[in-house]
Design a protein around this nucleic acid. Structure first.
Lengths: 353, 353
DNA sequence: TTTTAGCACTCTTGTCGCCTGAGTGCTAAT
DNA sequence: ATTAGCACTCAGGCGACAAGAGTGCTAAAA
């Protein structure tokens, strides 16, 4: 699992070694301070062999190349989106997450096994805390859901609760209105029968199969199909997000930006916006600002990885933060957690292969 | 189901009819504009029989009574928390939600039946949209969870998935590490047996009962108890919240306030903070600002109702917004939705009585 | 040819003073 | 009891001003 560098590789603009160094310092400094960084400042703070004037010249070149910008004639340089991309693609030490963080993550994530229903929520919490930004985790999904098991529980004479377990261990409940009053014992028998008949089948396959010998069975099967279709529906992907508080009050992030993020993340539109761009595979992908993210997220960067097994059961895990964020730390955190989750999922969904 | 007025009734400070009218106008105007409201303004805008000077005198009285305040010598009056409380308790038309909103809510909430797993999330979405503020919905909980049914599914030779359904239709999954390799058929038998033996029992009762004739059964029962205890644990209440974007950019709400809300709501601390104050029953309760909410929520108001059946299965639904919010609208919305949810829950959990 | 020192210029940020508008409190008249 | 009038106060907007930081350019030094 290595970093995806294709995004930046094709914008291959030549840059001298020293310009790279300057860009690296600008990014680093601006990420930690949030303020524009000037030549004098760099020359004084870091005792590199060059003077402020030299740095100024290099900065001018970097600006011509589109990697930095300055808003006012006299206001220090700020990395552009392209600058951040170059930094991520070429200037970043691609080292692993510090052992301390790894231990902390594993420790916190251990309770996922016993609190299995909501491990995405737990993962989101852990990720948000370690990365110090907004985390996003989707529940795992198969290409097409297949039935593993189902239960029927009588609620009222003509109303039953259907519990459907897929091969990927997704559990869904829904109500079934029954055409006639039915006893719990009869529901149990029906559920056992349907479980046996339909095990391993998808929505499509359930539909085409001859079923519904009785009105009762027909009603149940109808609901089963509806539930499976809901699971398969791409706009029903459940998304968990934590750490939203981390983006308020950041320099460069306005109320409008916060508003946009909250709206997108809570409404699910966020997923629709970035999902098409994500390619499954073993890479951590980085999207930065304008041209790589929707308009409302111009001031943000997104770091995502897919997790899962076998290209079948898979999901998404990522971090959203201001463009001005610590990329190497976030990237290594996301990478580490996606591995961890893949392991969990592999345990959970062995039948998916 | 009527409004809870006790909170304000005991601070019975005498106030003339006209002062009430002035207070009502101040609240109304400040809620809609967000700006402090002055005597001249009121006199001109509303053609009541009194002059600006009279209103000024009344305002002075209201201020002495602690219902309004002015930050600067010359900056119009603003309702205090006590002022809002008086308004909610005495000056508000306690009418029902407009029919249009009722229809819209019912319409949107209809899909809850088929998307049953996450109806709290759906409810939170609807509530946030209608109320235009932050919504909060907890999943329903019984005093003590009791087993209705359980399933065991083989994941690996020594690893199984336990699916536990409580009488309140809560479904939980967890992993069980088995002391030896076990086939799916045997797990099925064991699950059926335990289902029959333990149906209707709580964590306590499962524990005290003589069980675990075999190491395998013992391992499973151990996990069952652990899961039940988790369900019973008060700090594991799952909470859904939507509409967080609605509080950013509001006049009077600073970044710090937004930060606090996001932190409290996402971390679950919000629930711990207000839950002790909520009394179950048929009333909508209102908590406003300082003295009724935690320090970080000084600038907010919370409107909550409990839903559920029989004092047994119950949950919470509420709205969080700036003190400067439309109380009558929010209160009637919360009241209406809590009724709707109670109906849903009554269908879902008939066995709970 | 590359690097650097120096200098003039620009632009932000903070501060001060000024003015205006809105609102108050008080007093005297109705 | 109500109202008109008046002096007073304060926030917010505006311009002037100085300080600080940073730039671009040019000429000298390496």
């Amino acid at each position: 699992m290595s970093l995806d560098r294709r995004k930046t590789t094709h914008t291959q603009i030549e840059i001298t070694e020293r310009q790279q160094q300057v860009l690296r310092l600008i990014v680093r400094e601006h990420v930690s301070n949030g303020r524009p960084v000037g030549s004098k400042f760099l020359a004084e703070r870091y005792s590199i062999g060059y003077s402020a004037a030299t740095i100024r010249n290099e900065m001018a070149e970097l600006e011509a190349a589109g990697f930095v910008d300055h808003l006012h004639t006299s206001g220090g340089r700020v990395p552009t989106d392209a600058g951040y991309r170059y930094f991520v693609g070429h200037l970043m030490d691609d080292i692993d997450l510090p052992a301390g963080d790894q231990i902390m993550i594993r420790h916190q994530f251990r309770q996922a096994e016993t609190k299995l229903d909501d491990w995405p929520e737990l993962a989101a919490s852990v990720l948000a805390e370690i990365a110090g930004n907004v985390s996003v985790v989707t529940s795992p999904r198969a290409d097409t859901a297949r039935i593993r098991h189902l239960e029927l529980i009588s609620l009222q004479p003509q109303l039953a609760l259907l519990i459907l377990v897929t091969r990927e261990s997704t559990v869904r409940q829904s109500m079934v209105h029954l055409p006639a009053a039915v006893e719990q014992v009869d529901l149990r028998v029906l559920a056992g029968q349907l479980s046996a008949d339909l095990a391993g089948r998808s929505a499509q396959e359930v539909r085409t199969q001859v079923v519904g010998s009785t009105p009762l069975a027909a009603a149940v099967v109808e609901q089963i199909i509806e539930t499976l279709r809901q699971i398969d529906s791409p706009d029903q992907i459940s998304i968990r997000s934590k750490g939203l508080q981390n983006i308020v009050g950041q320099p460069g992030i306005e109320d409008d930006d916060v508003h946009a993020v909250l709206q997108l993340v809570q409404g699910g539109a966020f997923l629709n916006a970035i999902l098409p761009q994500v390619e499954s595979g073993d890479r951590v992908q980085v999207f930065i600002g304008r041209d790589e993210l929707p308009d409302q997220l111009q001031r943000f960067g997104v770091i995502v990885a897919t997790y899962g097994v076998d290209d079948n059961v898979k999901g998404l895990i990522g971090v959203l933060g201001p463009t001005r964020m610590s990329y190497w730390r976030t990237i290594s955190t996301v990478r580490y957690m996606s591995r961890l989750i893949s392991d969990l999922v592999a345990d959970l969904y062995p039948a998916a292969g």
